[in-house]
């Protein structure tokens, strides 16, 4: 177990390094974009004088490297700056939105992960049957359609035609949980449809991959029923790849929601990022991207730890 702690600490250290590199890349990528916040905010009415004055106020007349170091100095102490547009601290500007995004991702994950694993195990058991093919075709269709398209289709059928769920996911803080779940059901369902295929097919492939193993044949020759061969003998050895794909998809649920948020007008972090990029609001862009990067790093670490914990050779050393 000491090894595991060491691995986690090492990976967290490397993760911080990655975040630093990401922050540099993002900063200079935003710098490369044509125009800046002064032009974006003042719009067409801008005169060269007002633009210059605004730049001076925001400190944009200073060299880029200096501004980055200033930001970094603050970030190390936990201060990610203030939004250049509204003047709010970054944490306030995106905090609620980040919580909303996490809520939506968790909602989708709680539905998608069990469904895809159960489906994956079922299609592995019934491989090459009609059920297998239908499940594959349906999930592949849902993964191959663009998310906004899926979202509009769902709105058309479940909101406009049958009126079962609201088409727009507007939230307010005094909603009860059940109302919240009802309002966000369509965006969550869209996300579920997008990620299920990947996880299901990996579960299926990881299990089928093991079916040629001698211990699976042994289990069969012991008279073990087919479902038990899959669930008890194959699945415990297939976790490592499955966990990795789950982690990747969970990361996607957090970082890839922009389109879904736009379609359902959901107040999440993706929309905040799009707005901030349009306005060149660097501190917000930087904070959102770092959240996304940290999500990937932490989930991948969690996947590796999960893969180690499900491997009996590593869990019970000689």
């Amino acid at each position: 177990m000491g090894d595991l702690t060491r691995l986690v600490l090492k990976r967290l250290g490397l993760g911080l390094l990655t975040l630093l590199v990401v922050s540099i890349l993002i900063f200079f990528a935003v710098e490369l974009l044509p125009g800046d916040i002064a032009e974006a905010v003042l719009g067409q009415s801008a005169t060269p004088e007002t633009v210059a004055e605004m730049r001076r106020q925001l400190g944009l007349d200073q060299p880029a490297v200096w501004r980055y170091l200033q930001w970094l100095g603050g970030a190390v102490q936990g201060d990610f700056g203030v939004s250049l547009v509204s003047g709010e601290p970054v944490s306030e500007a995106i905090g609620d939105r980040f919580v909303n995004t996490l809520f939506l991702a968790a909602y989708a994950a709680v539905i998608a992960v069990p469904i895809s694993i159960i489906l994956g195990v079922t299609v592995a058991l019934l491989r090459n049957t009609l059920f297998d093919r239908v499940a594959n075709v349906l999930t592949l269709t849902s993964i191959s359609s663009p998310e906004f398209f899926l979202g509009y289709i769902l709105i058309l059928f479940l909101a406009v035609k049958t009126n079962m769920f609201p088409a727009i996911a507007s939230l307010s803080s005094d909603m009860s949980l059940s109302e919240l779940l009802n309002r966000t059901f369509l965006p969550a369902l869209t996300l579920v449809l997008v990620v299920t295929a990947h996880m299901m097919r990996m579960t299926r492939a990881a299990i089928i991959n093991l079916l040629a193993s001698p211990y699976i044949e042994m289990a069969r020759l012991k008279g073990t029923p087919p479902w038990k061969v899959i669930v008890k003998h194959a699945l415990p050895n297939a976790w490592a790849p499955i966990i990795n794909v789950i982690a990747l998809n969970l990361a996607y649920l957090i970082t890839g929601v922009v389109l879904v948020e736009v379609v359902f007008v959901y107040p999440g972090i993706g929309q905040a990022l799009v707005d901030a990029v349009a306005k060149r609001d660097f501190p917000i862009v930087q904070a959102c991207c770092l959240i996304f990067a940290a999500t990937f790093i932490l989930l991948n670490l969690a996947a590796d730890v999960g893969a180690i914990l499900t491997n009996p050779r590593l869990r019970h050393p000689k």
Binding site: P214, E217, M218, L221, H233
Partner: peptide, 24 residues
């Protein structure tokens, strides 16, 4: 046929290391 396997006819494989499930 399955009902015979393990109960009335049993099998011992060539490589025990590969034929025992590593997870149990």
């Amino acid at each position: 046929r399955r009902a015979l396997r393990g109960s009335r006819i049993a099998y011992v494989a060539q490589s025990a290391a590969a034929s025992f499930n590593p997870a149990h």
